[in-house]
């Protein structure tokens, strides 16, 4: 986050402090919630996931050492609980993304959403596409008359790929603002304006707040 752009983004120094003080656990939970609540796949949190993995690894080693140091069983079980909670969030985050990839792999691989995937996710998406194409070719498409054999188009007369499932960006989501976001337009015509102050809770169209979610100014709940 650039300090220079503070005013433009409406971030006060107070918010900035809380941003710094936020732990990786909080960040990961936020990423998990947003990922679960948003209809499309969001940017993969590469460094955050990396850091979380390292912390988990470190903690696993520590917990393993405990019995040797004669730490009392209560303490060990509490550390284990903390570890399990962290593992749950990380796994659920990755799983949620995989579910989205399985659902929209064609759409994702055709659009710039592709860059939001991690390397492993890209591999996964490629394999998904391959297997699905092969399967559909063999079981259905090869038995259809000429002109109807595309996996992407309903028929040869379609002008565009009209059989690719896409996430519904015009769906409604619940969102909560962290700081004051200020007034912003809800639709292109500009006749609907919402003034988001701190801690407001709104149901809005995902499309209209997409950029605010991506920049981390509001959270989906």
């Amino acid at each position: 986050m650039e300090l220079g752009s503070e005013e433009g983004l409406g971030i006060s120094s107070e918010d900035y402090d809380s941003l710094i003080a936020t732990t990786d656990v909080e960040l990961l939970k936020r990423a998990w919630r947003n990922e679960k609540a948003s209809p499309e796949i969001l940017q993969f949190q590469t460094s955050l996931v990396q850091r979380s993995r390292e912390q988990i690894q470190l903690m696993e080693d520590t917990v393993e050492e405990f019995p040797k140091n004669c730490t009392d069983p209560l303490t060990v079980s509490l550390y284990q609980m903390d570890l399990d909670r962290m593992l749950f969030v990380l796994r659920s985050y990755l799983r949620t993304r995989l579910q989205k990839i399985e659902k929209y792999f064609i759409h994702i691989s055709k659009s710039d959403l592709w860059n939001r995937l991690s390397d492993q996710e890209q591999k996964f998406a490629k394999k998904c596409t391959d297997y699905m194409e092969k399967h559909l070719q063999r079981s259905v498409l090869s038995h259809l008359p000429y002109g109807y054999q595309s996996i992407l188009r309903q028929s040869i007369s379609s002008e565009e790929d009209d059989m690719v499932p896409e996430p519904r960006l015009d769906t409604f989501v619940f969102c909560k603002s962290k700081g004051s976001v200020g007034a912003f337009q809800l639709d292109d015509s500009g006749d609907e304006i919402v003034d988001l102050v701190a801690d407001d809770l709104y149901v809005l169209r995902y499309k209209s707040i997409k950029s605010l979610v991506e920049s981390g100014q509001i959270d989906l709940v």
Binding site: D187, E192, L201, R205, S208
Partner: peptide, 14 residues
């Protein structure tokens, strides 16, 4: 309705 304001609605209620 383009937006519904539900300030202070809690997590479980949401």
């Amino acid at each position: 309705t383009h937006a519904v304001k539900l300030k202070n609605l809690s997590a479980m209620e949401v």
